[in-house]
Design a protein around this nucleic acid. Structure first.
Length: 803
RNA sequence: GGACCCGUAGUUUAGUGGCUAUAACGCAUCCCUUACACGGAUGAGGUCGGCAGUUCGAAUCUGCCCGGGUCCACCA
């Protein structure tokens, strides 16, 4: 660290910018957060969420990473050997989309290798700036231990995961209907779907049955060419007589059978429905249950196929318009009713999803629902009700996990196919990672005798890699230490990705390692704007962390983040940042008062005065209450009790009460409060270090380091609680009540607090004589006596104060 | 439609059966007291969403209702 300035000559005002940047450099240089597996202390390992390299850190990141860092710093102070590695998520669709945007290219129109190279290059360009944002808010990861989800080791582990799943009979390839994003042109999984409320229209369209009109309502007329059947409810009297007959599809004139099935809702639309391959999941169920033919009207790029005849090549949207126009002019469109309905969209691009048949790789897990619920119950959830979200998701699972992606930049599928019989050949474990486009398959000859293989071009869903983060983190260490950090102690993450990241990681860990991946899960909420609206670019209510940091300190930002409970969303409120900065200044100022008091005194000195015993007793309670809260991940509660002690007991009252003694007292009287002042300051900087690491470090460096000899407050250990002294506490309570009463008198008289009192009489059952000197000086009374008094200020305490 | 969370001063919030319901911001009045005016002291402000019940006693427990939110499902 740069030479610290002498305490006395330090700036009157605290310059957070200067201090924070200086301390960041100091922590870096001194490797304060370096993880050493050989160091003593029980390991506490954190499965850090690897953020996606996409532009910059947003306020939600700042919020949740600050929260997890508060936990990490607390554990470090408690003497745990904290394994807190860093990672970035930079493979697959998010990175591709970012690169396409930044470099103005289209992955599908470029040479594959060139596009991958461009992605790699862009990632490297962005990374240093990207990480700097996290460092700036004081994230105490060991950044020398980081993975990138596209690096060779991560590719190896992802591919190994599939090979292991394959061994366990959970990896399969199937030509089946699957969720498909026509914009990204890839199959996707259920977890990547989102619901979007979109306007649509119920169109009453005329089919013909035996020459008679049959009106069917549909929102998707463009699927008419893919219509393969018609369904009505078996008990629906309106349509009973039609069951078993054939209907003619308008515009396309092919015949389809009319069936009865209980899945039809008679009250919806016309109560009779056309089944197309595929309009929705019910269509898919009917397709399977009734063995219906497959008619593909929509191609993988979202355009209509040759099956659509003259509509071929139109987009879904355009085809819908064109067909409706044609139906109308043919008199086959009877009625249109506008509706709002939810549509599945791809969460990355908001494109409406289609169900399209294709050959894809899946991970089989639908058979494991019961097990999954059991695994979920083995975790300690914070807050505990979040387990419901998990259970709800598991119970609602309907698809196996589709993991192949028809994209370019990501972890390659470690698979080749026999050119002749299409048998899949998986890579050999010992050759990983592989790229089938470059590397050769592990066998020379297929079972069928063919020696020619074609590489799989698809890549893996990013979640295949992300779901391995505990393993990715552990493998940053030499092999002999890996079992020490797994299962990990904590997974901190946002609650909205329980169904993605948490679920997948838990599943994989149980299947691969037969173990939970972590013991504790801490779910953070997200940041809303001051009105409680979710922040989003489209609403224009985004608050950028750099804007906040331009105005407030990183300590203030963390103080704000530390004020919310786990799992609770928080509104961005400037006043919380103001409060954070106020705390920083207060600590700075009180430290400046204490500094000369503790500059030199016998460190073996003892406390002898009752009020000093009182504050130490309060400190002791604060330390244990804070620890209790922290141990349950209730850091906001910890912050509250520390704040209350520091502000009310210590600054507003104790310091005022002992000031006179500190300046004017006898050597023994001075020594007593010096010992207490030092103990309090030394404890407060440790207690608050998880929240406001910068100011606490600065105060520690300036005033405490030379006494204590540890290089950083963050390595200095949790404060040791002094003895609780109940009789001193009783005295303290009375003294505080009297002090408040006198202050009130003076306020009512509208005079300065230093205006002298002629006489102060106190009546109470507690013997407070030992505190009278301090009290007398603080209220500036000429005489203080114990005796009959007139005014009850709190139960059992009466006071008479005369000017 | 299913599940879950939340509703306490103007705002944010503490408080899971018991003293007169917390605190911060804001507001009002006063005070330049040698750590801090980037501060301090004092004060005003709440029928704890509503109704009913359990209980000696309910912000707290139960039921119903109202309001806000999230996740999941619904996509004809």
């Amino acid at each position: 660290m740069m030479e610290t300035k002498a305490p006395v000559s330090s700036a009157v005002h605290y310059d957070s910018k200067e201090v924070e940047l200086r301390l960041l450099a100091f922590w870096d240089k001194e490797r304060v957060y370096k993880f050493d597996p050989e160091q003593k202390g029980e390991i506490y390992s954190i499965d850090t969420p690897p953020p996606t390299v996409s532009g910059r850190m947003h306020i939600g990141h700042a919020f949740s990473y600050a929260q997890q860092d508060i936990i990490a710093r607390y554990k470090r102070l408690r003497g745990f050997n904290v394994f807190y590695p860093w990672g970035t998520d930079d493979n697959g669709l998010p990175t591709e989309r970012l690169v396409e945007k930044l470099k103005n290219v289209k992955g599908s129109k470029m040479d594959r290798q060139a596009f991958i190279a461009l992605c790699e290059q862009t990632r490297k360009e962005l990374l240093p700036d990207f990480i700097a944002d996290w460092k700036r808010i004081g994230v105490s990861c060991d950044f020398s231990m980081s993975y990138s989800t596209i690096d060779a080791n991560c590719r190896r582990i992802s591919q190994w995961s599939l090979i292991d799943l394959n061994k366990k009979g959970r990896f399969y390839r199937k030509n089946a209907p699957a969720l498909w994003c026509p914009l990204c042109e890839t199959g996707i999984s259920q977890m990547e779907c989102q619901d979007a409320e979109k306007p649509s229209t119920f169109n009453d369209i005329v089919f013909k049955v035996d020459g008679m009109e049959l009106i069917i309502a549909t929102t998707r007329p463009e699927l008419l060419p893919a219509c393969v059947a018609i369904f009505a409810h078996p008990n629906d009297d309106r349509y009973k007589k039609l069951i078993g007959k054939k209907a003619v599809v308008p515009l396309f004139n092919h015949e389809v059978q009319i069936y009865a099935d209980g899945r039809v809702d008679p009250s919806k639309g016309s109560g009779i429905v056309m089944c197309c391959t595929f309009g929705d999941q019910t269509d898919m169920q009917w397709y399977l249950a009734f063995n219906l033919p497959l008619k593909e009207a929509i191609a993988k790029n979202g355009k209509l196929t040759a099956l659509a005849g003259k509509y071929q090549g139109l987009s879904v949207h355009d085809a819908r318009k064109a067909m409706l126009a044609d139906l109308k002019s043919a008199g086959l469109l009877r009625h249109q009713k506008p509706i709002q309905h939810p549509v599945k969209v791809h969460e990355r691009c908001q494109t409406e999803i289609e169900i399209i048949q294709s050959k894809q790789w899946f991970i089989k897990y639908l058979d494991l629902k019961e097990k999954m619920i059991e695994w979920g119950s083995e975790l300690r959830w914070h807050p505990d009700f979040m387990v419901h979200r998990y259970n709800n998701w598991v119970n609602g699972l309907q698809w196996d996990w589709l993991v192949s992606r028809q994209r370019f930049f990501g972890v390659p599928m470690p698979v080749w196919y026999c050119k002749k019989c299409d048998e899949a050949v998986l890579a050999d474990e010992k050759n990983l990672p592989v790229d089938p486009l470059i590397d050769q398959p592990p066998i020379k000859k297929c079972k069928c005798g063919s020696t020619e293989f074609v590489p799989e071009k698809d890549i893996l869903d990013t979640w295949v890699t992300s779901s391995m983060t505990p393993k990715l983190a552990a493998e940053l260490l030499p092999a002999k230490y890996r079992s020490k950090v797994f299962p990990m102690s904590l997974r901190p993450q946002a609650h909205e990705i329980i169904s993605f990241w948490l679920f997948n990681t838990l599943f994989k860990s149980e299947i691969h390692f037969n173990s939970v991946p972590w013991r504790d899960v801490a779910l953070s909420g997200y940041v809303t704007d001051p009105q409680g609206e979710k922040m989003s670019k489209s609403k224009g209510n985004i608050v950028a962390p750099e804007t906040v940091l331009a105005k407030y300190s990183a300590d203030a930002l963390r103080y704000w983040a530390g004020g919310s409970k786990l799992g609770e969303d928080i509104a961005y409120q400037e006043k919380e940042l103001v409060a954070g900065d106020r705390f920083v200044k207060k600590l700075w100022n009180v430290a400046k008062f204490i500094a000369p008091q503790i500059e030199s005194f016998d460190s073996k000195g003892k406390v002898s005065e009752v009020l000093d015993f009182w504050i130490l007793s309060r400190l002791a309670q604060t330390i244990s209450a804070a620890a209790e809260a922290f141990d349950h991940y209730e850091y906001s509660k910890a912050r509250m009790v520390i704040d209350q002690f520091f502000w009310r007991d210590f600054c507003d009252n104790y310091v005022e009460l002992v000031k006179n003694r500190a300046y004017e007292g006898s050597a023994a009287e001075k020594l007593s409060c010096q010992v207490a002042l030092l103990a309090c300051l030394s404890a407060v900087v440790r207690l608050m270090a998880p929240f406001t690491p910068f100011i606490c470090e600065e105060v520690y460096q300036l005033y405490l380091k030379s006494r204590e000899g540890v290089k950083s407050v963050h390595l200095s250990g949790w404060p040791v609680a002094p003895k609780v002294d109940e009789s001193a506490e009783k005295v303290g309570e009375v003294v505080l009540a009297v002090l408040a009463a006198v202050r009130k008198k003076k306020s009512e008289a509208k005079v300065s607090m230093k205006v002298p009192l002629k006489r102060l009489v106190i009546e109470c059952s507690v013997d407070i004589s030992a505190a009278l000197d301090d009290l007398k000086a603080t209220v500036n009374a000429e005489r203080v006596e114990i005796g009959k008094a007139s005014e009850e200020v709190v139960p059992g305490v009466k006071v008479t104060a005369e000017f």
